[in-house]
Computed example of a mutant assay.
Amino acid sequence: MAADDAITVAVIDDHPVVLAGVEHWYSTADPPIEVVASGATAETAWTRPGDSAAVVVLDLQLSGSRLAYDDLRCLVDAGRQVIVYTMRDDERTALTCLDIGAFTYLTKAEGEDHLVAATVAAARDLPYTPPALAGAFGANTATERPRLSVREEEVLIEWFQCESKELVAERLGITPRTVNTYLDRVRIKYASVGREARTKAKLVARAIQDGLIQVDDL
């Protein structure tokens, strides 16, 4: 999207005061951020057929104690950019959300500045790592090989075997923007375990080392 385009957001939270507060933060943001839908269930994100919000802000704990992992998975599978925005601050939950495919993970204690910045980054396909998520990466006990989600592996392998990201998007039924998001997320995960892979060639090397793909498959 162009830098001066309005960013559209769907906000999902079952606390009216949180919805009101987030909408107020967005109303004063620069660049402009427009809340096109808000409500207490994940169905909120699909209230405008054909005009989906660019970003979905999802409270992880809706209507009781159940964590909304299934809702997150459905949104991610539909190619949505999801910011998990929650009271939970434990590393295990944060890493689980990233494994499912969340764009980023924010605790509500991190407040307005981080939520607005993360929303802009999500809309523009730029990686964003807030303090809580940086802490989760640091606490990840997995060594050497990062934990990639099934969808991240799928996008990565398709990219190795295709001439362009546009072709990957066509094959998988997602947008080129979503392809970029998954690849950025994979790079962040490799960097978090000390194995940076900034180029396609480096990612190919990492994937071969980790057994995700064979040389003969390329």
Rank of each mutant, 00 (worst) to 15 (best):
D14W: 04
D70N: 03
D13P: 05
R48D: 12
A197T: 02
A94L: 08
Y69V: 00
I174Y: 13
L62W: 05
R171W: 05
S52R: 00
E153C: 11
P16W: 05
D71S: 06
L156F: 03
L98D: 15
I208M: 11
A191W: 05
I157Y: 00
T143Q: 06
D59T: 07
G50E: 09
I213D: 00
C97R: 03
S63A: 15
D210E: 10
P16Q: 13
L167Y: 11
R177T: 05
L218H: 05
V18N: 04
Y190C: 03
S38Q: 05
T119S: 01
T141D: 15
T107G: 10
Y26P: 13
L167I: 12
I100E: 14
R206P: 02
I12D: 10
E110W: 14
V11N: 08
E158H: 07
H15N: 06
G79C: 11
A20F: 11
A136I: 14
V57R: 02
R80F: 08
I7V: 14
T104I: 07
I213E: 02
A102F: 05
A132D: 04
A10R: 05
A109Y: 15
A54D: 14
P32H: 14
P16L: 03
T181A: 11
A78E: 09
L58R: 08
T119H: 10
R187V: 12
A118W: 04
P127H: 05
D59N: 12
D113F: 01
A191H: 06
G64V: 09
A53G: 09
G101V: 06
P131C: 08
S63E: 13
A136P: 15
V18D: 08
A123M: 02
A207T: 00
V22R: 11
A29F: 15
Q81G: 06
L115D: 12
T41M: 08
I188V: 07
L167D: 11
E112A: 14
Q81E: 10
D13M: 09
T141Q: 13
V35D: 14
V116P: 02
V82N: 05
I188Q: 13
K202G: 07
R151V: 15
M1C: 05
A142D: 15
G101F: 09
R147A: 04
I208T: 04
H114R: 01
T178G: 01
A53Y: 06
G79H: 04
P49A: 06
V36Q: 12
A37Q: 02
Q161Y: 07
D30Y: 01
L148N: 12
D90Q: 09
R48V: 14
K202H: 13
T129K: 07
L172V: 09
R88I: 15
A197E: 05
A121K: 03
E43T: 10
C162V: 04
A2Y: 12
A191M: 04
I83N: 12
L133W: 00
R171H: 14
Y128V: 00
T107M: 08
R124G: 00
D71A: 05
R187W: 08
D216H: 11
D113R: 02
I12T: 11
V84F: 01
D30Q: 03
D30I: 01
T199C: 02
T96V: 06
M87P: 08
I213Q: 04
L183R: 13
E166D: 09
K200S: 00
V186F: 08
A40H: 13
A123F: 00
A121R: 01
V17T: 09
T44W: 00
E110L: 03
S192A: 11
Y105R: 05
G64E: 13
E23D: 12
L218N: 06
Y182T: 02
H15T: 10
V11G: 08
L75A: 10
